[in-house]
């Protein structure tokens, strides 16, 4: 058996190869970064410029006027208010309806359990617009069109999957023996739920709350259909902005729209990364 001695030529070739691979990887990473962050940067710059016309590589001038205009515009600030209040109401109603259901799904075996769990998903796989049109005809009869309740109901529909599946998995994951130990220590059933089960499921419930908040915050189609021009939220306002306002106003608005998502997701990053979101969808 022979061992090839490493010549200086071989060393140079491998060094060159490594450099080329490194360069290729760098190009791919930069391209990907531009693809992902490019539009965001462009958007962010847009929000602070007077104008930015074609042949120029840099914006024509800098200004904060667009922000002032957005906050001064009654309709736009009203949309910001609406978005937040609908999201809060949606989360509250959704939690009220879904958390008890989640507990039942997580803790009890009952006929049709799997069917209902899958059915919750089916609602999300359905073409949204078709669902909303059917819903609209129902809402006309029930006089829910252009009402706050109507909008909240539409929003809740979009949060049911998060608010049921994730907490259900969390409730199922609380060991029975922890509850039994509390019973044995002298706590009644209700006490056990509020001192043991709920605190242990809380991180997952928090994730579900935030996912639901964001789902409601970003909901546009259903809100547009049910709310019409009476109740405009930030996403529905975006449609009008693109048509009737300068591009810079839309840029300011989309930055405002993305703030809650970024902040809330950053807050629960650990839980989402830690798999509570993933575990939620592994319920058997």
């Amino acid at each position: 058996m022979t061992i090839t001695p490493a010549t200086s030529a071989d060393g140079a070739t491998s060094a060159l190869r490594r450099a080329l691979v490194g360069l290729a990887a760098g190009v791919v990473v930069i391209a990907l970064a531009v693809f992902i962050f490019g539009p965001l940067v462009w958007l962010a710059i847009r929000a602070f410029v007077t104008s930015w016309t074609y042949p120029h590589l840099t914006p024509d001038g800098w200004t904060m006027d667009w922000w002032g205009k957005v906050f001064a515009d009654n309709q736009l600030s009203n949309a910001v208010y609406n978005s937040f209040s609908f999201a809060v109401m949606t989360v509250a109603l959704s939690a009220l309806i879904c958390l008890p259901a989640a507990y039942a799904f997580g803790r009890y075996q009952f006929p049709g359990r799997r069917f209902f769990l899958i059915a919750l998903f089916a609602m999300n796989s359905f073409p949204k617009m078709g669902l909303f049109v059917t819903l609209a005809s129902l809402f006309y009869t029930l006089r829910l069109m252009e009402t706050q309740l109507g909008i909240v109901i539409v929003h809740v529909m979009g949060t049911v999957v998060f608010m049921t599946w994730i907490p259900a998995a969390a409730f199922a994951a609380v060991p029975r023996s922890l509850e039994e130990a509390a019973r044995d220590a002298g706590a009644g059933a209700l006490r056990v739920f509020f001192t043991i089960t709920l605190p242990l499921a809380l991180p997952s419930i928090l994730v579900a709350v935030i996912m639901s908040f964001l789902a409601s915050f970003d909901e546009a189609q259903g809100t547009y259909l049910v709310g019409g021009s009476t109740y405009l939220t930030m996403p529905t306002q975006m449609y009008r902005l693109v048509e009737y306002y300068p591009l810079q106003i839309a840029a300011v608005f989309s930055i405002l729209l993305s703030i809650p998502s970024v902040v809330l997701l950053a807050l629960v990053r650990k839980q989402v990364m830690g798999g509570q979101l993933a575990e939620g969808f592994q319920l058997r």
Binding site: E180, A181, R183, A185
Partner: peptide, 28 residues
Amino acid sequence: NPEKRPSAMVFQSYALWPHMTVFKNVAF
């Protein structure tokens, strides 16, 4: 029911409450 009985149990899995300190577990 168990909470009304004059018995106390030590579980195979210990069943300590993970969100409470040792002191709070015993104090519960």
